[in-house]
Computed example of a mutant assay.
Amino acid sequence: MRMFRILIPVALSAAATLPALAADYVQAPGSSLAFAGKYQGETFSGTFPDFRTTLRFDPADPGAGKLAVTIPLATATTQNPDYDGEMRGSAFFDVSKFANATYTASGFRDLGNGRYAADGTLELRGVRKPVTLTFTWTPGSRPLLSGRATVPRLDFGVGGGEWADTAMIPDEIAVSTRLHLQPAN
């Protein structure tokens, strides 16, 4: 019995010094991925309702983080049939050739004050370019990642031809996400 009393404090002490392990998450209901920009001075916004996300994240070790997002482009909507038809066409997303966009990032940076950055790669219309997502993390039983990025649409060939005029549609499109998460099974 004496040996048992000695082993318990030693075991608890060893467990307390183990590093926290990154948790694996999947997207939970209530998540959103949105975009916004201007067309001839008027603000437009839309969503990608069918996007899917997996995340590995531990705020104590953001460098071990991994993020993967798949975005089915044909489901993108502004709730304006004219915009949506044009957006899915060859000048913009060209969904007949490019069904999905993807965003992947490995190793996040701690920006301080509960803010982080994922320096990732966006693949859109067959073009791969770096895009940084800055985000905050709210822990809990259903963690929340709230993030923002800016996508230079012309770098990806989005809005070519007559739509390449940045006086008509600025190059920078704002992307935001509220990602509710649950543990991966």
Rank of each mutant, 00 (worst) to 15 (best):
residue 79 Q to Y: 06
residue 82 D to H: 07
residue 83 Y to A: 12
residue 84 D to G: 04
residue 85 G to I: 07
residue 85 G to K: 10
residue 86 E to G: 13
residue 87 M to Q: 12
residue 90 S to K: 11
residue 90 S to M: 09
residue 90 S to Q: 14
residue 91 A to V: 01
residue 92 F to A: 03
residue 94 D to V: 12
residue 95 V to G: 04
residue 96 S to T: 15
residue 97 K to Y: 07
residue 98 F to C: 01
residue 98 F to R: 03
residue 101 A to N: 03
residue 101 A to R: 01
residue 101 A to G: 01
residue 102 T to M: 04
residue 103 Y to P: 00
residue 103 Y to R: 00
residue 103 Y to F: 13
residue 104 T to G: 04
residue 105 A to E: 02
residue 106 S to K: 07
residue 108 F to P: 02
residue 109 R to M: 04
residue 109 R to S: 10
residue 111 L to K: 05
residue 112 G to M: 13
residue 115 R to T: 10
residue 115 R to F: 10
residue 116 Y to G: 09
residue 116 Y to M: 10
residue 116 Y to H: 10
residue 117 A to G: 06
residue 117 A to Y: 06
residue 117 A to L: 09
residue 117 A to S: 11
residue 117 A to N: 08
residue 118 A to T: 06
residue 118 A to Y: 02
residue 118 A to S: 10
residue 119 D to Y: 00
residue 123 E to P: 00
residue 123 E to W: 00
residue 124 L to Q: 05
residue 124 L to V: 08
residue 124 L to N: 04
residue 125 R to A: 03
residue 125 R to Y: 12
residue 125 R to S: 06
residue 125 R to L: 05
residue 126 G to S: 12
residue 126 G to D: 09
residue 127 V to E: 13
residue 128 R to I: 07
residue 130 P to L: 04
residue 131 V to I: 12
residue 131 V to S: 00
residue 131 V to D: 01
residue 133 L to N: 02
residue 134 T to F: 00
residue 134 T to P: 08
residue 135 F to H: 01
residue 135 F to W: 07
residue 136 T to F: 00
residue 136 T to V: 06
residue 137 W to Q: 06
residue 138 T to M: 07
residue 139 P to W: 14
residue 139 P to A: 11
residue 140 G to A: 11
residue 141 S to D: 05
residue 142 R to P: 00
residue 143 P to V: 08
residue 144 L to V: 15
residue 144 L to P: 04
residue 145 L to Y: 08
residue 146 S to F: 11
residue 147 G to R: 01
residue 147 G to C: 10
residue 147 G to F: 05
residue 148 R to W: 03
residue 149 A to K: 00
residue 149 A to C: 08
residue 150 T to A: 04
residue 150 T to I: 10
residue 151 V to H: 03
residue 151 V to C: 04
residue 154 L to H: 09
residue 154 L to Q: 12
residue 157 G to N: 14
residue 157 G to A: 14
residue 158 V to K: 02
residue 158 V to M: 02
residue 159 G to D: 11
residue 159 G to W: 12
residue 160 G to C: 04
residue 162 E to A: 15
residue 162 E to C: 04
residue 163 W to I: 07
residue 165 D to S: 15
residue 165 D to M: 08
residue 166 T to I: 13
residue 166 T to Y: 09
residue 166 T to S: 15
residue 167 A to I: 08
residue 168 M to T: 15
residue 171 D to S: 13
residue 173 I to T: 11
